[in-house]
């Protein structure tokens, strides 16, 4: 339980540090070792078809990219920024207008250099999209210590 809370805080700080996720209002629902759940609220700003009110696939891509990128934090002991190598999204059906979309991501394989994640975007029991993503490990020294300390323990970043 304590570990879950500590992962949840890390993921919340990480997602909160991404300007575009703040704009879309992405929140962290849960985080545990190797998996997590994020939520994208419905808003007019992400509508792709003004005639139907259906949100644009790109917003779902952003949600799933963030979910897969953040689940990395739930799998590694130290925080490292891991650039996305590739991402593939299969759209099962349009998201229902007016309802939030949740992304449940799972890290299913990690090696010294690569991380493999999968993610499902859902509205309740209804699957909206599936995603599979690969991340590259560039080492924790590739990101500044102040940022790492902020994500891992919440210490203020002096230089920003």
């Amino acid at each position: 339980m304590t570990e879950e809370n500590f992962l949840l805080s890390r993921v919340k700080r990480f997602v909160g540090s991404l300007a575009h996720c703040r704009l879309l209002g992405v929140t962290v629902v849960s985080a545990e070792p190797n998996s997590l759940c994020l939520e994208l609220p419905y808003s007019e700003a992400i509508v792709g078809n003004p005639d139907t009110g259906v949100i644009h696939g790109g917003a779902i891509t952003t949600l799933m990219d963030t979910a897969c990128g953040s689940v990395v934090i739930c799998a590694l002991e130290d925080f490292e920024l891991c650039p996305t190598l590739d991402l593939r999204v299969d759209y099962m059906r349009p998201a229902r207008p007016g309802e939030p979309v949740q992304a449940r991501a799972h890290l299913f394989r990690q090696t010294q250099s690569i991380l493999f994640a999968r993610c499902e975007a859902v509205q309740g029991e209804r699957t909206v999209a599936h995603c599979s993503a690969t991340f590259m490990r560039i080492g924790k020294d590739a990101s500044p210590k102040a940022y790492r300390d902020y994500i891992t323990s919440g210490t203020a970043m002096e230089n920003s």
């Binding site: 991404l18 300007a19 575009h20 644009h56 790109g58 891509t61 952003t62 963030t66 990128g69």
Partner: peptide, 23 residues
Amino acid sequence: ESNLGNPILPAVHGGVIGGFMEL
């Protein structure tokens, strides 16, 4: 500014690049 992800580089959010390409 509001399209940024990684605040350190800073870099455009990968999802924004994807969304832009999709759109």
